[in-house]
Write a protein that binds this DNA or RNA. Structure first.
Length: 558
RNA sequence: UGACCCAUGGUGUAAUGGUAACACUCCGGUUUUUGGUACCGUCAUUCUAGGUUCGAGUCCUAGUGGGUCAACCA
């Protein structure tokens, strides 16, 4: 396992290694992943998960899963379950039981009291509008609230009354006493507790005051003795506050580090916009294979390891970035190439009659299940006088570099014989209805002594031994790489009307077992497909995971 | 009219003051009974201008460009 080349570290790994070297926290590494249970995990979360869990794993540490559930109005247990499932599916395991910021409501309340006692927090009766007005703007300093000068005793009493439900929602807040003139807006006496007489998904009606993010997150980290609290760049302005609370409260000094979140072409991560897609039926649900959600990618057939490798290869840094979707697809293909079972499926069938093959006769042929994996074994497929091939694999008047079937030329049938195309029937619309060919009986796969070397090889299915299936072809959800890049254009105008094409009448080999949900196939010469949850015994349904690279298509575009 | 973060090929990420690396894409080629896979090759004087140094992508200053911050959201 030793590398002769020194491994390069990202900036977080450098910090961690430096800390370990210096014996900080006795070399202990504890990270955390802190989702708010108010939505489904998506590709952006995968990145955050891969960083926080990955760092811990690399340095023999651990990661806490902590639900940041400080806002009862938006949060729900339903999301808790899906988040847990998605993390595990990705292949990560948190330390111990899942944790909740709400577990710390009691301690957080105590912290607030301590701050008040130190004269570092006060109850403010101002309206939201007044508080906003007093905040100033980034370039204009804020002004002090008249309530800022209340006595410690009065604040203590008022805060306790807030907790006891004496006051109406929104009538009072507890604010940290920091600095209204700070150039950092977050330091201008941030609100740390608000009154919300609402039931919490875990604490029920125990509390009617709830801490704000800034007063919950850092302290929760500290309570759990998190050593490295990794988050995205937009929290960078929160760091001084994070440290201020820890410092004033004199509690465990967790440290926050920020990295740039990952953007991916053709994918959006805005909760609001994702919800819009679902509600307005642009997609069939949160797990629609076109969605950038973990459940969507899972249903599309992306292997968890591919997603992990992708996050890894995308790297970690502090600058804005947009990763090309081709990197993700490359990771998916890399994974599936090793594992997917090969099979032949004809999406748009046209019949071929092999005129010199005896009527009523058939034979069994051996086909390898995966050329990349000798242990995957073989299967039998049936060959006979009539077969189906892909309509696009035939051209009556072919260009020079067309290696497929065309009258007068030879082409190989995968796992079978070489065919010589002799003619074609057309219907009244001029559409090819039947192709005629002869076969070279001495060209059987594996024992070919014909000496013929066709340039092309086609996939096919037997006319008698194939069965119909539905195939769902997916394309990018949007027509442009960055659908949310322009504030003046609704991202839905870039919705790709052709993002889903259903092929109800494809033909698959009938020799194999009934496809089970979760099994990954490679449809030869097409791409990787997985069995969809809608699939059943009578009607197998496949989802396109990702197409094979297609250098022929590229050639044709020129 | 303030503060903070950032700047390396088409896209990302490295190079930790000693002469630009890796991956993906692209283009070209070899192998191939998947136009797949595998393999090989081409593609950058590191935003600009000064400065420090024997030596700067790396350190300093200024500029330019991009991003972020004013929810009783997280």
């Amino acid at each position: 396992m030793s590398e002769d080349k020194k491994e390069s570290l990202n900036f977080i790994e450098q910090i961690v290694e430096e800390d370990i070297k210096n014996g900080k926290h006795n070399g202990r590494v504890l990270t955390r992943f802190p989702p708010e249970p108010n939505g489904y995990l998506h590709i952006g979360h995968c990145k955050a998960i891969s960083i926080s869990f990955g760092i811990a794993q690399k340095y023999n540490g651990a990661t806490n899963l902590r639900f940041d559930d400080t806002n009862p109005t938006t949060e729900d247990t339903e999301y808790v379950e899906s988040i847990k499932k998605d993390i595990q599916w990705l292949g990560y395991q948190w330390q111990g039981e899942p944790l909740y910021a709400s577990d710390y409501f009691g301690k957080l309340y105590g912290f607030a009291v301590k701050l008040i006692e130190k004269g570092l927090a006060y109850v403010d009766d101002s309206t939201p509008e007044e508080i906003a007005a007093m905040k100033g703007t980034p370039s204009i300093p804020g002004t002090n609230s008249t309530y800022k000068s209340r006595s410690v005793a009065e604040n203590l009493q008022l805060f306790e009354d807030m907790k006891n439900g004496v006051y109406a929602d929104g009538s009072k807040v507890l604010r940290a006493n920091v600095d209204m003139t700070s150039p950092n807006m977050l330091m201008r006496d941030p609100i740390i507790y608000r009154i919300k007489k609402e039931s919490h998904h875990r604490t029920g009606d125990t509390w009617c005051i709830y801490p704000m993010y800034d007063f919950a997150h850092g302290q929760s980290d500290s309570i759990e003795e998190i050593t490295h609290s990794l988050c995205s760049l937009e929290f960078i302005h929160h760091r001084p506050l994070y440290e201020w609370f820890i410092d004033k409260l004199e509690i465990f000094p967790s440290k926050q580090y920020e990295f740039a979140r990952m953007n991916v072409e053709y994918m959006i991560t805005s909760k609001r916009k994702l919800l819009k897609l679902v509600q307005d039926k642009y997609v069939t649900g949160w797990d629609d294979p076109r969605m950038p959600t973990v459940s969507g990618m899972r249903r599309k057939g992306y292997p968890p390891m591919a997603i992990r490798n992708f996050c890894d290869k995308a790297g970690v840094a502090k600058r804005e970035n947009t990763i090309e979707i081709s990197l993700l697809e490359s990771c998916v293909r890399e994974e599936l190439n090793k594992t997917a079972l090969r099979t032949m499926v004809v999406l748009d069938p046209v019949k071929v009659v092999i005129t010199n093959y005896p009527e009523g006769q058939s034979e069994k042929l051996q086909a390898e299940n995966n050329p990349e994996d000798a242990t995957a074994g073989h299967r039998e497929i049936t060959f006979g006088r009539e077969i189906y091939i892909e309509r696009e694999d035939f051209m009556e008047n072919a260009p020079p570099k067309y290696f497929r079937m065309t009258p007068g030329s030879d082409v190989r049938l995968k796992h079978a014989y070489i065919l010589h195309c002799t003619g074609v029937d057309k219907d009244e619309n001029g559409e090819v209805s039947t192709i005629y060919a002869t076969y070279y009986s001495n060209s059987r796969s594996g024992e070919d002594v014909s000496g013929i070397k066709p340039k092309g090889t086609l996939h096919w299915v037997s006319a008698t031994e194939s069965k119909p299936c539905e195939v769902r072809m997916y394309d990018r959800l949007f027509t442009v790489a960055d659908p949310t890049g322009d504030d003046d254009v609704d991202f839905l105008t870039y919705y790709n009307q052709n993002s889903l094409t259903v092929i109800p009448t494809a033909l698959m080999e009938s020799n194999q077992d009934t496809p089970k949900v979760g099994i990954q196939y490679q449809f030869l010469r097409h791409g990787y497909f997985c069995v969809d949850v809608d699939s059943n015994e009578d009607k197998p349904i496949f989802n396109l995971t990702v197409g094979l690279k297609d250098s022929f298509a590229k050639e044709m575009k020129k």
